[in-house]
Write a protein that binds this DNA or RNA. Structure first.
Lengths: 214, 214
DNA sequence: CCTACCGATCGGTAGG
DNA sequence: CCTACCGATCGGTAGG
């Protein structure tokens, strides 16, 4: 357990490199040797810290979920106004996943590879937070801040998916866009999420067709 | 090469079963033997029709893309009005992928597993169609039918992603929703795509259009 | 299309 | 006795 104090311990580095490799190649496409090579240790060394390859996968997913277990409640409780709350949660969601697209890729692969486990996660530990956010939208609907025909639960799940998909595939889709592709892509994600939640202000209504440089 | 006339030939059945298996387990998680067993032939039989496992993968992806190469131009040319065009293309997109979620899963896995190839596809053969749809949105903006601040190219890419993600993961996210989960999910996808494109009609306008901070 | 195989490489574990 | 590993190789299975 004792380690050099000036560098991250092997466990931490395994999780970090495994995140990168699992995102790029998937679980079956990554060997324990690949992870060991990336960290700079031997394969048995990796299997000393994690009893099996499966344990590495779980640690990677856990490191991503752990962040939100702490952050989401803090964001929801800190913001009081409705729009503040949207900006705080959505902004952090977008920032977290675009700042390291590998996190989004790992989550998407997990949903594809192990749907049963992901379902269990959504119906269990994640559920209360989805419900909480949906509840805020529902309140906003009663106060006529949001569109009346939103399905709050479905909206929350779909915006989450949109952010994940956008972050995971920005490097693939960006070359299609000219100029600041990443910026354009991220701004449009935020615009879609916002425009489908908040009706436009009267002044910014359809009319003023501003033409976009391109 | 000769086959019974009353049942699909082996090639077709391999593509069909491989779509299912690749969607569920991915390329590295699927063995040629798995495909052979699903079809009811031996492994060498599969490798008789397709020179390698890689050729099976390409045939699966091709069978999905081929549909759109025919359908998209037809839909774009048939509809004349702007809203008709949106409904026609978006509706068919949603129908195609939700009617067999495995198609969406295969495309998503392909984007994750082979980003370079997917990039080439987007910049090459798919590009003209993305541009065409974006161009229609751009025209709609000039005619003040759409929001002025839409980034058409980014919007098209993101709606495509949203539909793919929604279709691919409906079986995972649906258990969170009560009642007709699939229906709620699909209706909300359509609502988000529409509400972020078309400003609301005046009658359905936001009651208390409030000011947005940020 | 099957039976019978190949070179290689997989995840995991032995003794030291 | 423990920890933190290494070199070597296990039984099985992959694509072809």
């Amino acid at each position: 357990m004792v380690d050099r104090p000036d560098e991250p311990d092997v466990r931490t580095r395994v999780v970090s490199e495994a995140t990168r490799l699992l995102a790029a190649r998937g679980f079956d496409g990554t060997t324990v040797q690949d992870i060991a090579d990336a960290v700079g240790v031997t394969k048995p060394a990796v299997l000393h810290y994690f009893p099996s390859k499966e344990h590495v996968r779980e640690a990677v997913l856990e490191s991503i979920l752990a962040y939100w277990k702490d952050t989401l409640p803090r964001l929801l409780l800190a913001a009081t106004a409705s729009e503040e709350r949207f900006d705080a949660v959505f902004g952090e969601l977008l920032r977290f996943f675009t700042s390291d697209p590998n996190r989004a890729r790992v989550v998407m692969r997990e949903a594809l590879d192990r749907p049963a486990e992901m379902r269990k996660l959504l119906r269990g530990p994640v559920r209360p937070w989805l419900t909480a956010v949906a509840q805020y939208i529902h309140s906003g609907q009663r106060a006529e801040r949001h569109y009346a025909d939103i399905d709050p639960e479905a909206y929350v799940l779909l915006v989450l998916q949109l952010v994940l998909a956008a972050a995971a595939s920005a490097s693939v889709t960006s070359p299609v866009l000219e100029g600041d592709a990443r910026g354009r892509y991220e701004r449009e994600v935020a615009r879609i999420a916002r425009a489908s939640l908040f009706p436009p202000e009267s002044r910014s209504a359809p009319a003023g067709a501003r033409k976009r440089a391109r």
